[in-house]
Each structure stands twice: as structure tokens, then as C-alpha cells.
């Protein structure tokens, strides 16, 4: 997840202070990725260093610089996006996300290593994983059943995404089982009577 671009997206709508960024982000993404406020400030500092955001001048009678520092400490400093920030954001929205190399997938790694290992029962691993993944899919579906499509659109869209990913995992497990069965059958044909 890109916290940088997420903050830019919110600031592009309107100038916001640190805590507001945190709560708007969490509301828009159905609370799926909690942000801690420290992470927000660290990211804002980097965005400022790169010229993508700037503190909004305070409407305080005290000097601008002093107000900026004070208010940042109390979380009331309001930030706004710069022209370069808008450009960076627009590039982010325009470019499709392509994960190459694929993100690390612990299940895939576990199964591939189990297939390579002599002493591990892959079928058993796959069976237990399918049960667990199906339960996860049932939980997600239960949330979908309870969600209000009018008031909870971000939550429903997120659930749809998670359901489809979980479904893909189930299909992959099914595919693994099928390929392993075919491989066993082919070995059997080559060496009749041998179990492995």
C-alpha cells in the first residue's frame, strides 16, 4: 500500500491536518488498513521534503513559521498539496498496478517447498488449507450479507475484492490437487505396483 499516494489523494480534495488524514484514509478504505498517526507525520515530512505537500500558512497573528511548528506538534497543522504533488498523484492514478515480481505469497512458497520435499504430505497440506480458506470465504460472505449497500459501499467493494482473492486461492488449491493426482497416476502407469 502506498501511504504517500493515499495522503496525496486526500489532500487533493482539501487541505487537512494530520489526524484528519488518518481518519479520512481509514473511512475511505473501510478500516482495512489502520494507519498510526506517527506514520502519517513521517510520511508528511517526506512529502514536504520532496515538494509534494506544504504546510498551509496559519491564520495566526504570530509568525507563520512559529505557528507551523507549534501546530504540527499538537496535530493541528493543516497541509495542502502542491502542483508537483498533483502531478505525482495523477501519475499514480493513471498507471495500472502491475506486480512484477509477484508479491511474496507464503502459501505458494509453502506448497512449492512441500512438493520439492520428500518427506512432506502435500495433499494433506492442501486439504487443510482448503478447509481454512473456505472458512475465510464463508466469513467474508457473512460480512457481505450483513453489509448495507447504501451506507457501506467502500466496505462492500473491499469485501468483493477479498472474496475474489480468496476464491482464486481455492481454485489454485484445487488445481494443485488435480495436477498432483495426474502426476501420481502417470507415475503409476510408468511403474505399475509402485505407490509413489
Amino acid at each position: 500500500m502506498s501511504v504517500r499516494h493515499s495522503l496525496l489523494a486526500i489532500l487533493a480534495d482539501q487541505p487537512t491536518h494530520g489526524y484528519g488524514l488518518k481518519s479520512t484514509f481509514e473511512r475511505s478504505t473501510a478500516g482495512a488498513w489502520p494507519l498510526n498517526v506517527g506514520q502519517v507525520y513521517t510520511t508528511l515530512a517526506r512529502l514536504q521534503r520532496d515538494g509534494l505537500v506544504e504546510p498551509e500558512p496559519a491564520a495566526s497573528p504570530v509568525g507563520d513559521a512559529a505557528a507551523t511548528v507549534d501546530d504540527r506538534d499538537t496535530g493541528r497543522q493543516t497541509w495542502r498539496i502542491t502542483a508537483s504533488g498533483r502531478e505525482a498523484l495523477s501519475t499514480w492514478f493513471d498507471e495500472p498496478i502491475v506486480a512484477d515480481p509477484p508479491p511474496r505469497d507464503e502459501l505458494a512458497i509453502k506448497v512449492l517447498l512441500a512438493v520439492a520435499a520428500e518427506h512432506v504430505d502435500v495433499t494433506d497440506i492442501l486439504h487443510r488449507q482448503r478447509t481454512a480458506t473456505m472458512e475465510r470465504l464463508q466469513q467474508l460472505t457473512h460480512h457481505k450479507h450483513k453489509a448495507d449497500p447504501d451506507r457501506e459501499l467502500p466496505w462492500l467493494l473491499l469485501l468483493d475484492a477479498l472474496v475474489l482473492k480468496t476464491q482464486a486461492e481455492l481454485e489454485w488449491i484445487e488445481r494443485c490437487e488435480q495436477r498432483l493426482r495426474e502426476q501420481r497416476a502417470a507415475r503409476e502407469r510408468r511403474q505399475p505396483g509402485s505407490e509413489s
Binding site: M134, L137, Q138, T141, H145, V163, L164, Q167, L170, E171
Partner: peptide, 12 residues
């Protein structure tokens, strides 16, 4: 599987 997930129990 997405349809099966609406069920209380899924049998394989």
C-alpha cells in the same frame, strides 16, 4: 466457491 460460501457448511 463464492456461492458455496453462503452456506453454513461446505462439503467436499
Amino acid at each position: 466457491s463464492a456461492h458455496a460460501a453462503w452456506a453454513d457448511r461446505v462439503l467436499f
